[in-house]
Structure formats: C-alpha cells, structure tokens
Deep mutational scan, measured.
Amino acid sequence: YTAFGDLEVFLHGLGLEHMTDLLKERDITLRHLLTMREDEFTKNGITSKDQQKILAALKELQ
C-alpha cells in the first residue's frame, strides 16, 4: 500500500504523472512547484508544454 502525496495527486490531476519521478529526484515539493519561476521550470527539465499545464492550473487556484 502506498499513499500518494500532494505532489502526486496534483500532477495526476493534470495528466502529468510522468513528471513525478523527475521532481522527486530533484527534491521539488508541491510547495516549491507552486512558487517556481519560468527559468526554474526549464532548469529542472520541465518542458514548456507541461509548464503551461501547471501554470494554467495555478491560475485557477488563485
């Protein structure tokens, strides 16, 4: 049995499950992801397509 964390649930909701391992390897938490700047997305290997999905979701949360 494995409990999913906030990061996994957030990514799954956006259809971005493939990013879970990448972000965990880089010790990026959901809190960090929510406050990242555009250059940090790129530096951490997050594609512009995935970045757009994340940023759109963040706008909806605000």
Rank of each mutant, 00 (worst) to 15 (best):
L23P: 03
R37H: 11
Q51E: 06
K59Y: 09
Q52T: 10
D21K: 13
H12L: 12
E60M: 15
Y1L: 10
H32L: 05
A57V: 04
E38L: 03
G5W: 05
L34C: 14
G13T: 11
G5E: 14
A56R: 11
L11C: 02
E8F: 01
K43N: 07
A56I: 10
Q52I: 10
E17G: 15
L55T: 13
T42K: 13
E60G: 11
H18C: 01
D50L: 00
L7E: 03
E38S: 11
F41H: 02
Q51F: 07
D6H: 03
Q51A: 14
V9L: 12
E40R: 00
H18S: 08
D39F: 05
I54E: 06
R26W: 00
M19Q: 04
T20H: 15
A3Q: 13
D27W: 00
Y1D: 15
L23I: 03
V9E: 15
G15D: 05
L23M: 09
A3E: 15
T35S: 12
L61F: 12
K49P: 09
A56P: 14
A57M: 04
Q51L: 04
R26F: 00
L55V: 13
K43W: 06
D39H: 05
L22H: 15
L30Q: 02
T35Y: 09
R37V: 05
H12T: 15
D50W: 00
T35D: 11
G45S: 03
I54A: 04
L61P: 15
L14F: 11
H32Q: 13
K24S: 07
E40L: 02
H12W: 06
I46N: 02
I46K: 01
L16S: 01
Q51R: 12
N44W: 11
T35N: 11
L55K: 15
G5F: 08
S48E: 12
D50Q: 11
L61C: 12
D21S: 10
T2S: 11
I46M: 04
R37Y: 02
D6M: 00
L34H: 10
K59G: 14
E40Y: 02
L16G: 01
D6K: 04
T20W: 07
T42F: 07
I54Q: 05
E38Q: 10
L22D: 12
F41K: 03
K43I: 07
T20R: 08
I46Y: 04
V9G: 13
H18K: 04
E8R: 09
K43S: 08
K49H: 11
A57K: 14
L34Y: 12
E8H: 08
L30R: 02
